[in-house]
Design a protein around this nucleic acid. Structure first.
Lengths: 195, 195
DNA sequence: AGCGATACATACCGACGGTACGTGAAAAGT
DNA sequence: ACTTTTCACGTACCGTCGGTATGTATCGCT
């Protein structure tokens, strides 16, 4: 049991976000009641509503952490690469791996757009990961690696492609699905290159 | 007022699916109560539960019709083209146009995966439209227009790209978003071509 | 020590999905 | 033609769930 109020607050919120993440990932937002979440977290509904304004807001907090985790893994993979092009391909592969995990799959890719609406989901996705994709593509267009073209539509196309691919990989019983998708995606990115 | 029972059944189910489509498209599955649907359709909950086993099953019926409408538009556009390659590009453009409409956007692309789960959504999407994409790509690989490669991952990537792009187009206040996306997608498809 | 703010816990409410049961008209059987 | 069955509902009701109002113990500050 933590002593100070700040610690107590931190512990309670963390427990709620932890259990929320676990349960939402397992059975989906709509199928999980607040009663079960607070019970699993060892608190009551009073505690939940003291820290979060609604079930939706708890979900927001859960989503933020899931997106943050995915973004960290992508950033780590990209930072290990020397140039923009390999940063892009390595980042894409890391994104496929990270977002086909249980939590990211259900929470970030399936439930989030329906619960928060597409506009808000897109804004959060943009801030967490799509922005890096956009920057990488813009840099590649800038240095002539990719023919000059508007990047915004391209970012949406590639982002959507990877999101859907991650869902497919996660569901697939074929262990080679990740590699097959990664190869197809890399081929697609290479096809974009200027000669 | 229809006389026969079959006509009555048909009229009631159609009214429920019509109003369900309208309301789900406007405010989303979770935000619409059955009371409002049956009220708009001019029937009662008894009628709804006589024809549909649950709110979810009504949504299934709604989704089936929305997907069918989109598939019809895509098929019509593709059938007007002479060869496989232009059928593919024309079909993709038709898909972007059709699925960025109000009903398809919210029902087919946002709510459906969350309500029915990704597996069921994918199965329905496959049957309605992704199958045609797969056939077109397979044909193009077959005749050597596209380098030999597994089509399954490519279908998922392109399908996801188009779904996300449709959502972006629908939300965008830029009237040129559709054309810009179509150009980017066409460029991407062309980049796939064997030399 | 006293006092306000904070971090809860408890009791309760309205809405919503779903069910049980009743009813009247069409269809089927004789 | 008359009875019987089935169908297409309508009505009343129930349990659950998200959300709220209110009470209370503890912490931190003066």
């Amino acid at each position: 049991m933590p002593r100070t109020k700040a610690q107590q607050r931190e512990a309670t919120m963390r427990a709620l976000v932890d259990e929320g993440t676990r349960l939402f990932a397992e059975r989906g937002y709509a199928a999980v009641g607040l009663a079960e979440i607070v019970r699993s977290a060892g608190v009551t509904k009073g505690a939940l509503y003291h820290h979060f304004g609604s079930k939706e807001e708890l979900f927001r907090a859960v989503l933020r952490r899931v997106q943050s985790d995915v973004a960290d893994q992508v950033a780590a993979a990209a930072d290990a690469e020397p140039d923009t092009w390999t940063q892009l391909t390595a980042g894409c592969r890391a994104f496929l791996t990270a977002s086909s995990g249980r939590s990211a799959r259900r929470i970030m890719l399936i439930d989030a757009p329906a619960v928060l609406g597409w506009n808000e989901w897109r804004a959060m996705d943009e801030a967490a990961s799509a922005r890096h994709l956009e920057e990488a593509l813009a840099a590649l267009v800038e240095d002539g690696s990719i023919p000059d073209q508007p990047v915004a539509p391209l970012v949406r196309l590639l982002s959507g492609a990877m999101n859907e691919a991650a869902l497919w990989i996660a569901q697939s019983d074929d262990p080679g699905a990740l590699d097959a998708t990664d190869r197809a995606l890399t081929r697609l990115l290479h096809a974009l290159r200027a000669d």
